[in-house]
Design a protein around this nucleic acid. Structure first.
Lengths: 335, 335
DNA sequence: CTGTTAGCGCATTCAT
DNA sequence: ATGAATGCGCTAACAG
């Protein structure tokens, strides 16, 4: 055992000729301390390079001053944007984020949730995921919770989400309006609510336009580029003709686009594509991709703002993030 | 303050008719306990759904049972792969990883390091980064440390890295061998050692072949796709002709490729590209990209293996990861 | 405003 | 093999 953390609050107290409590007070800022002692303590802290022991602090106060963030895949661009938003708003709040990754697996996600709970996170931000809603409802009773990207009626106030159904609807409608009738849907992981909703939106738009929902034109993807590529292969094998694709996120849209490109199929001349998320990278990188806007950074900011409010015991107001199409040139009009 | 964590070790002791010490013993497994009491305790734990308080445990034991991982950008594919390797090896070790992100900024990185230290991580894995080496040397004295992707002579045993110089050299040599003489280098962030080394390797290969190093053909990138795109724009403005590009990572190679594509320049027919990292996504997604292999998962596995060894006070053996070219069809032979 | 006291929940002596 | 006692470093009443 290394003996770093040798200097304790008592050492500071001694050096500054005050009691430990006084040191604690200037540290927390919860009570007034005479100027002279204040500076003496601060000076001692600096000289001795004192760092509070978070274990002792957590044990005594019951708070960890951390916000647990449960994600599905830390290294996905959309999560990156959300996390960025979270960080921005947490800065200066005194709380630090602690991340745990669900790796798109329900088992790992459960485990990650436990880790966060065990670490006594003062608040929890759950981004998407496939945790049974009962688990989240139960969790919400024990600790301030904000769920991003899912709508759970029982704890609706804790949820922050875009209208995925509407997004899927708009995307599909956009294609229909442009004359497309054989429209593919590359869905997300269907154990995730948002994926299902986007699919339902797609179906609704078709039905509303009097078009049949053709299962052969629906392929379940995995929210990553590879699955977009594979989806095209699957579609080719099925042999159904199509003139447009609605992919449930930009990464899959991107994969699909590349797969088409390799087969010599042009976008949007031969096939139109619309994605989802409006990821900066997609926007900037790919040949222009029409997509549905997912205000990820804003979602993240709202999430951390809300969790802070909840921790402070203050009310939160429900913000809604409407679905919105961002048009670029990956959809063409059919004649 | 919520009163979750109501059930303590004392509750278990009471229910199982033993002393708290005994409960602690079965929990840690550090001492023999009679079978009957053992099962009684386990039963009580299960029934009361007991979870140890990590603060109390950390305070009493001085250990956190966590490994701090300092990254530069959690959401970068290469870090993702490294982290995956780390996770694999940590599983079942009793240690959990805790992540902190340096966001490619020295300031944020310093902060992240402090966070990890404050959390009393029992070991630290620092992936790349731009922390002054003095800081790392000092840190290594206080806590078991493994540095991935940097070579620091003073703590060489703690370092785990590929030969970036050799990688840059090989990549450039490969292009030269194929007849290219005007070779662009889109470098990484030059405050990072690995970026500098790849650049130096590039220069060495040029000189060795009797080619001049032309500053106009060198562009500093940011290790992401966007900077690859921008690099091409910058090059176009400069107006220097070139027939090949060596990009210091696959993401930038990818960006460069797209930028070229948009300008109607074909790869590899008009311009050859070689990347760095051999990222699965690149390999799978982009039109084949010749690249330098970066065994990220293996690096991650080695890192966590080593950190575990260090914590146990056991010796580690120095593994070397040689640079290796992975050839696909993004480099053509010039006639 | 400040010092004193008493735990927070657990691991770890030390006895037995 | 097991219980009792002690303390990890800090915060939060409680007095003054």
């Amino acid at each position: 055992m290394l003996d770093r953390q040798k200097v304790t609050i008592q050492d500071i107290a001694d050096k500054a000729n005050v009691s430990p409590s006084t040191v604690s007070r200037v540290l927390s800022g919860n009570a007034r301390v005479v100027e002279s002692k204040q500076t003496a303590v601060l000076e001692a802290i600096r000289e001795l390079n004192y760092r509070p022991n978070i274990f002792a602090r957590g044990l005594a106060s019951g708070q960890s001053m951390t916000i647990g963030v449960l994600t599905q895949n830390i290294s996905s661009p959309i999560y990156d944007a959300i996390m960025w938003g979270i960080l921005q708003n947490l800065k200066g709040s005194g709380y630090s984020p602690v991340f745990a990754d669900g790796y798109w697996s329900q088992e790992a996600e459960k485990n990650a949730l436990h880790i966060l709970l065990d670490r006594h996170a003062d608040g929890l931000i759950v981004i998407g995921g496939s945790s049974p809603k009962e688990v989240l409802i139960e969790t919400a009773k024990r600790v301030p919770l904000v769920v991003v990207g899912r709508e759970i009626p029982e704890i609706s106030e804790n949820c922050l989400k875009m209208d995925d159904f509407q997004g899927g609807y708009l995307a599909t409608q956009h294609l229909i309006e442009r004359g497309h009738r054989q429209i593919v849907n590359i869905t997300g992981i269907l154990s995730h609510d948002d994926a299902v909703e986007r699919l339902e939106g797609y179906k609704k738009a078709l039905k509303e336009a009097g078009l049949a929902v053709d299962d052969q034109l629906i392929v379940e993807g995995g929210f990553n580029e590879q699955s977009g590529v594979m989806a095209i292969n699957i579609l080719m094998e099925r042999g159904r003709a199509f003139s447009a694709i609605f992919a449930a996120n930009d990464q899959m849209a991107f994969g699909a686009r590349l797969a088409l490109y390799r087969k010599g199929i042009r976008v949007p001349d031969d096939v139109s594509i619309i994605g989802y998320d409006n990821q900066p990278t997609s926007a900037y990188m790919t040949p222009p991709l029409t997509t549905i806007d997912q205000p990820a950074v804003e979602l993240g900011e709202a999430a951390s703002f809300n969790i802070l409010q909840l921790i402070k015991g203050q009310a939160i107001e429900k913000t809604t993030f409407p679905a919105k199409i961002v048009m670029r040139e990956s959809v063409s009009r059919l004649r």
